[in-house]
Design a protein around this nucleic acid. Sequence first.
DNA 1: GGCGTATTTGAAAGCGCTTTGGCAAGCCTT
DNA 2: AAGGCTTGCCAAAGCGCTTTCAAATACGCC
Lengths: 353, 353
Amino acid sequence: MNLKQLSEKLGLSQTTVSRALGGYPEVKAATRERVHQAALAYNYKPSRRATSLATGRSMAIGHVIPLSSNHEMVNPVFADFIAGASEVYATAGYDMLVSVVSDTDELRTYRDLAGKGTVDGVIVHAPVPQDTRIKVLHDLGLPFVVHGRAEPQAIEYSYVDINNYGAFTTATHMLLDLGHERIGLLNGTKGVDYADQRERAYCETLAARGFAPAPDLITNNEMTEHAGYDGAKRLLSAANPPTAFLASSVVIALGVHRALAELGLKLGRDISVVCHDDALSYIGNGGETPLFTGTRSSVRAAGRRCAELLLDRIASPTAPHTQEVWDVTLHMGQSTGPAPRHTAAQVTSAHDA
Amino acid sequence: MNLKQLSEKLGLSQTTVSRALGGYPEVKAATRERVHQAALAYNYKPSRRATSLATGRSMAIGHVIPLSSNHEMVNPVFADFIAGASEVYATAGYDMLVSVVSDTDELRTYRDLAGKGTVDGVIVHAPVPQDTRIKVLHDLGLPFVVHGRAEPQAIEYSYVDINNYGAFTTATHMLLDLGHERIGLLNGTKGVDYADQRERAYCETLAARGFAPAPDLITNNEMTEHAGYDGAKRLLSAANPPTAFLASSVVIALGVHRALAELGLKLGRDISVVCHDDALSYIGNGGETPLFTGTRSSVRAAGRRCAELLLDRIASPTAPHTQEVWDVTLHMGQSTGPAPRHTAAQVTSAHDA
DNA sequence: GGCGTATTTGAAAGCGCTTTGGCAAGCCTT
DNA sequence: AAGGCTTGCCAAAGCGCTTTCAAATACGCC
C-alpha cells in the first residue's frame, strides 16, 4: 500500500493524506482522524526511501567503529555506547547505521557517507590528538559529535568527554595517599586521546608529589583481559615491582586480578588496583561493594548524550557548539588498601619458598 | 554535484552517464573512461536516497539487537558478530542498520523496517524455541537469516548455528572422565535456544553416565562476570558443592575464577572449569595455552557467514534454504584437572581454619 | 447580499536516480 | 541498393513521497 493507493481509497488527494499523517495543521480534525484510521487499517507506512528523497534528509546517523588495524578487535565499549545512542535515535525516528572499518579506511568511509547522503550526521569515536577526521567532516559539511576530545583543533566542534586527566589525577593521589610509591600504569594504545590524558595525569601527579615516574612501569596495549594479565605479570616479576596498578579499564583490571591470583597475591592487600570503569553491562564491576575501586562513568549515558547533541546540531546547524566534560567520581571497592610494608616481590618469594 | 550536472559537464545524457558508472555494456569504452574520470574529478557519488528509490532496494541490512528487557544489557558478543557481518556488507556495498530494542518491541521493529522498506533483509539474533519472529518475518516477505536455531518451526528458514548440544555433551563427558561427579552448570537465560540445548546436553549426558542431574547445580542468568561470580560462590558454599563447572561463556568463567581466588581455591586443581568460548576479541581466552578449557567457535566468523547467506537470499529469494550447524572443538586450557580427592568444601574449610 | 478572511483541499512540480523504448549511425548481408 | 543487425546514445517515464501554489468552500461582518 502506498500513498497513492491510500488516498484513492479515501477519496482524498495525496497532499491531504500526507499532511494528515505528517501532523500538519491545515487538515480538518475529522479528516485527519479518518486518514489515521485508514492508515492503520491498511497498515500503510510511508516509504523511507521516498520520504528521504523528497525531504533531502535520510533520517539516519552513522557510527563508524574503528577496528584497530593491527589486531582487528572491536572494543566492547561500543556495544554499550551504541545501545545508549540507539535509544535516543529510536524515539526521534532516526535509524542508526554502523560501519566497522579498519582505521585506515575511516576517512574514506566518511567521505562516502557524506557523498552518497546516506546519513545526516555521524559520531566520531576514539579521537586522537589533531584528529584529521574533524577537519574532513567539517569540510564535508556533515554534522558530527565527537565522543572524546581531539585537541588542539582549529575547528570548533561539539563533544562529550569525561575528565580523564582529573580521574587519573584523583586515582594517582589516592594510591599515593595509601602509601604506594611504585605504581604501574596499564594503559590503552598510545596516541588515543584518553590514554594520553591519563598518562599525563599519572606522570604529573607523581612529579607533583616528588616521585619520578618510571617509564618501565607504564604499558600501552589494547585493553584486553590478556593485556592486563601480561602487563601485571611482567611488571610484578621485574626487579623492584609496583605495589599498585592503575588500569585503564575493568577488562584490564580483570587481567591483573588473574595475574595476582596466579602469583598468590591478594588484591587490595598485597597489590592495590584502581581502574577506570565504563560501567559496561556485561563485564560489570557490580555488586554492593564493587570489586575494583575505580573512577566510574557510564559509556551508555555518553552514547545517549552524544546522540542528543548530534540531533540538536542537525536540527539547528548554526547553533553554538556544545562541549561537555563529565567529571567522574571515584567509587571505593575492594581492590585498594594501604601499601604493604613488604614489597610484592618479597611476598612473592616468601610465597614461592 | 548530481547526475544532471555531471552529464551536462560531459555533454552526455543522464542515461549514458548512469550506465557508464553502473558498468552496463552499452557504453563505448572511451566514453566510459571519460565518465569515470569526470566522476572522480568532480567527486560525484550517486545519491543513495535516489538510487534506492529508483531501484526499490535500500542496500541495507537490519540487525535488531535485543536488549533483555529486565536488565537492559547488551551482550558483548554482538560487537564481534556485527564486526564480522560488517566486513561482508562493506565489500558488497551494503550498509548495516542496527537497532537496539527491548525484546518486547522487537516485532514492531521488524514490521516497521519491512513497512518502510528501510532494509532489504535482517539477521535474527538469540532465537527462542518456536520463535514468533520467524513467522512474522516470513509473512512480511522480508529475507532473513537466523543466528542460532528456533526449532520446531513450520517454516523453512536459513540459519547458522553451532552444535551446542554436541559441545556441552563433549564438555560434560570430559569432566566426568576426569572423575568429576558433581558438576555445576552456569548457564544463560532459560528459554533462549542455545541455553536450553546446553542444559539438555548436560542433563542427558549425566543421565547416560548414571548420574542424576541435581537441579540445584544449575543456574540461569544473564551471562555477566558478576553472575558467574555469584553463581560459583553460591554453589560452592552449599552443602555438597560441585568440583567442576560448565560455564556458558568466558565472561561467566572469569567470574567463577574470581570466586575461586577469593575462596582460596585453585582453578584446575581444586575446581575445574570448562566454558564455551565465543572467541571475543577483548575478553579473550588468549595465549598459547588458554586459561580456560573450552569449546571454541568464533562468533565473528558466524557474523560473516550469516551476512553472506543473507545477501545470497536477497539475490535469489527462491533458492533453497541453507542451514549450517558448526561443530565446535574442545581446546584444552589450564582450568581442568582430575577431580580432587577432597571436595572443594573440605578444602575451603581447611583454608578458612 | 457582498466582500474580506480563514479554513480546508488539490494539482502538480520536484527530489536524483534507473530503466524502458526509441532513434540514428555504422556495418554486414544478400 | 535495400534490408537487417549491432552499437552507442538519448528522451522521458517512473520510484513514492513532500511541498508550493492555487483554488474552493465556509464564515463573519457591515
